[in-house]
Design a protein around this nucleic acid. Structure first.
Lengths: 385, 385
DNA sequence: CACTCATGGAGAAACGTATCTCCAAAGGCT
DNA sequence: AGCCTTTGGAGATACGTTTCTCCATGAGTG
């Protein structure tokens, strides 16, 4: 049997269970060749509009859906983007990163969908066979650790990788991050202006970029203005440890009169600790925490938060990745740098192009000595407690 | 050139850009056939251990990674599961569902990964071409609306569908949901026991299963105990509307002395509204809200919450789906019902098998007249305000 | 010895698409 | 009339697996 014969009448005479219509069936029903069907449906080739619409009509009538697997095999494009997140233990992401990650993933999903891609959520700790079993056009990596073997392997096998968080020592295609140093300095200045004399920091013990850069910025600022650093560090992935650390910080003999917490739960942790020690916020203690949650707008008092703008990050990361996917001939070393807008670019020629995104400080009552009117008016004047 | 010749020495003499090693390369390097390589790597066929390990070694050395696309094309299995969520407007999921969805998705991801599958997040509103471009082994649908065309099409094309939320009128393979009626009744009883005389409800205007069943349970309870219903409904997908509705509820002439809020932000909304009206919680107003967030453990006072246990739901949904995927010969009408454990099953023979999952009421100070000691001890005795 | 089996492995046919190459026919031009 | 160009479309190959079928070979067995 020749391929041609095979092509026209493939089905065995005994009609077996119902199978999905393939491109061959459409071609047969429309009385044209496979090529014509493919061209008509994909808007390629040179075909008169009449043929094109007729083929489309037949395809519609048969309920034809092209096989994603076959298309992927043929074109080398799956339309799938991996979204990788470092894991601590069993869970896909940590407690403190939760809101950030959720927001970021949401924006990333939207952005990808808008350009015809879908996101696959893949914890870095996934069994290797899961990674290998999925055809990915590219990968977004959130906060990769130094020398991440996963990133290295992806990069080596030609899959574009864009990281959220400046990579320590990984060969990524590009990266996006907040300007953490600027953010911390902005907060410290803000607190100083509000009258803080000794600003404390609640930070983490892990070595990821965010924690490291933020802490360094704090220490640098302390050195510059001549303040003795006052900080407590705790394992941020442990939900319970934050409350303990907050307590420790306020129990110190050199108790700070203002605190910045690097992680989302620190706001409530610090607020609770302040209550325990009879400290009024903001009168006795100024408070700022990094958080994406708007519950801090409704706490008593409302707490000033730093937003890392995860939505912007997610959108940017995905767009950079898709630019790389679609702009590179996959193998030929096309200059990727050209794809990225010059603004925000940090390094001109060296290692991977990075984009710094701004943060946003949402100032509320907790970081201002004279609290302005808040949306929720207090039940009675803030007199003696 | 015959297929055989093609098979052995396919590469053109001019070595082009570096290509990933294929199964052919491994076969050639190991001096065996393609079949043997495939069998050795997949643990199939009859091969002596010596051959198996040798082939594996060669594959490892060449950095061979099987093509996911080719495997999917051949086997019809992609290892991909769609996670669909109904959308309101542009965003993949609504504000109120946020924490629930995030937790559920996290658990679902873990469960899927544990069984070798990965999750693809796909808003129902995605462009059709995105849906069509992905080879899905099955789909999880969150709270499908009645007559969801998407679900119908998936089901028709043979893709197993399991829904989170009892489907209104969709042909799903199976579904999982909380026992919303029991949950609401439990809360109402709890509030009654705490001394509530008139219990109000903050509910939504949408027609999804959760809102509908919960509201019906409330109304039924009112009818039974002879209380006039006191409730306000608002469009739950609008973040700002909740505060307004909470305010309306407490401003009514027949103001309730206890309120249950169906959506996550209702807790803070109600707390803020109570403050505005000078109502003390729990003294003047008992409060319960449905929420997955633990911020309610740290509010002043801590608020009793109902957890829908999204993690359990996510895990169960995925496991049911994968059972269906792996248990059915895709086309032959194998009895799916047999796959599901008899306990929890609602209907025996009729429409799709459903599983009811329990909820959990986390009782805190806001719903108890005599507040027991909380973890955060108040700064001073709870005397007059 | 003439069998039956078990063992180890090779051949080749799909899976369903995209696309490269090529061909026929119909005008248009000199 | 002969040649070039455009239009419309068909053929066939390749993408990289998995798997069904089948063939040697050697060992056991009556």
């Amino acid at each position: 049997m020749t391929a041609a014969a095979n092509q026209s009448g493939r089905r065995p005479t005994t009609s077996r269970r119902l199978e999905r219509a393939g491109i061959r069936d459409v071609a047969a029903a429309a009385g044209v060749s496979i090529t014509t069907v493919s061209d008509a449906l994909n808007g390629k080739g040179r075909l008169p509009d009449e043929t094109r619409s007729r083929v489309r009509e037949v395809a519609e009538r048969l309920g034809y859906r092209p096989s994603a697997a076959a298309r992927t095999l043929r074109t080398g494009r799956s339309g799938l983007i991996g979204l990788t997140v470092t894991t601590y233990g069993e869970e896909p992401f940590t407690f403190t990163e939760f809101a950030y990650f959720a927001e970021m993933a949401r924006a990333a999903t939207s952005a990808a969908l808008g350009r015809g891609y879908a996101l696959v959520v893949l914890p870095a700790s996934s069994r290797h066979d899961v990674w290998g079993n999925i055809a990915l056009d590219g990968t977004v990596v959130i906060d990769p650790p130094d020398q991440d073997p996963l990133v290295s392997e992806l990069y080596r096998s030609g899959v574009p990788v864009v990281s959220d968080g400046k990579p320590g020592n990984c060969p990524v295609t590009a990266w996006v991050d907040n300007d953490h140093e600027a953010a911390v300095l902005g907060i410290l200045d803000h607190l100083s202006e509000a009258g803080a004399r000794r600003i404390g920091l609640l930070t983490g013990t892990s070595t990821d970029t965010y924690t490291r850069l933020s802490t360094e910025a704090y220490l640098g600022w302390c050195a510059k203005v001549g303040q003795e650093p006052v900080y407590e560090a705790y394992p941020a992935h442990d939900p319970a440890a934050g409350a303990v650390a907050a307590d420790r910080l306020l129990a110190r003999p050199d108790r700070p009169d203002a605190v910045y917490g690097l992680f989302d739960p620190n706001g409530t942790d610090l607020l609770a600790a302040a209550r325990r020690y009879g400290l009024r916020v903001p009168d006795d203690l100024l408070l700022v925490t990094c958080s994406e949650s708007d519950v801090y707008a409704a706490t008593e008092p409302p707490i000033t938060t730093l937003s890392l703008k995860p939505r912007k990050i997610g959108t940017t990361v995905v767009n950079l990745l898709i630019d790389a996917i679609e702009g590179v001939d996959s193998g030929t070393g096309v200059d990727i740098a050209r794809l990225f807008p010059p603004r925000f670019r940090t390094a001109g020629n060296g290692p991977p192009p990075g984009t710094l995104m701004p943060t946003e400080l949402i100032v509320r009552a907790s970081s201002q000595r004279r609290s302005p009117r808040t949306t929720v008016s207090p039940p009675r004047p803030p007199g003696e407690v």
